[in-house]
Design a protein around this nucleic acid. Structure first.
Lengths: 76, 76
DNA sequence: TTGTGACTCATAGTCCGTA
DNA sequence: TTACGGACTATGAGTCACA
């Protein structure tokens, strides 16, 4: 289901953000977006565009593909 | 620039679609969207959401990350 | 087979507050 | 520090007729 995509993305955003050790507010500031949006994103309630994912990748210093690796998936 | 993301994505969609040997119309049919949308996508004029990319990955039978590999980039 | 402009409707994303 | 909600504006989704 496509809801899974949003959830997976949100988990990856949170994971990568925590790895870089910054708050939602700091991430939002780096991206130039609202902090409330990051909150919804990480909870899988948002369906961002690829440009937004690109902003995320720049702000967190990771490749865009990092956001699409399903860490929860056991096989394949 | 973020325009580059749209262009890169469009190029990857076209590349992966041609690899699988189908027309824009066929891809659109598989995704359940209008053919005109695929046209705009491949030309880098659209900024799709991650759910749309997910539909693309299902229709073309590839992983989502495939759409974010920058084939035109020489180094790094 | 693909590109394009004009279009409607849904939602991305903001800004305010409260907890 | 984060979640949540309402009201708002900008922009993406998705279609169509025509070239």
């Amino acid at each position: 289901m496509s809801e899974d995509v949003r959830r997976m993305l949100g988990e990856n955003v949170r994971r990568l953000r925590l790895v870089s050790g910054i708050s939602q507010a700091k991430l939002a500031e780096r991206m130039g977006v609202d902090r409330a949006y990051i909150s919804g994103l990480e909870k899988g309630e948002r369906n961002p565009t690829v440009v937004t994912v690109w902003h995320l990748s720049k702000a967190l210093g990771v490749a865009m593909r990092e956001f699409f690796d399903d860490k929860s998936r056991k096989v394949k």
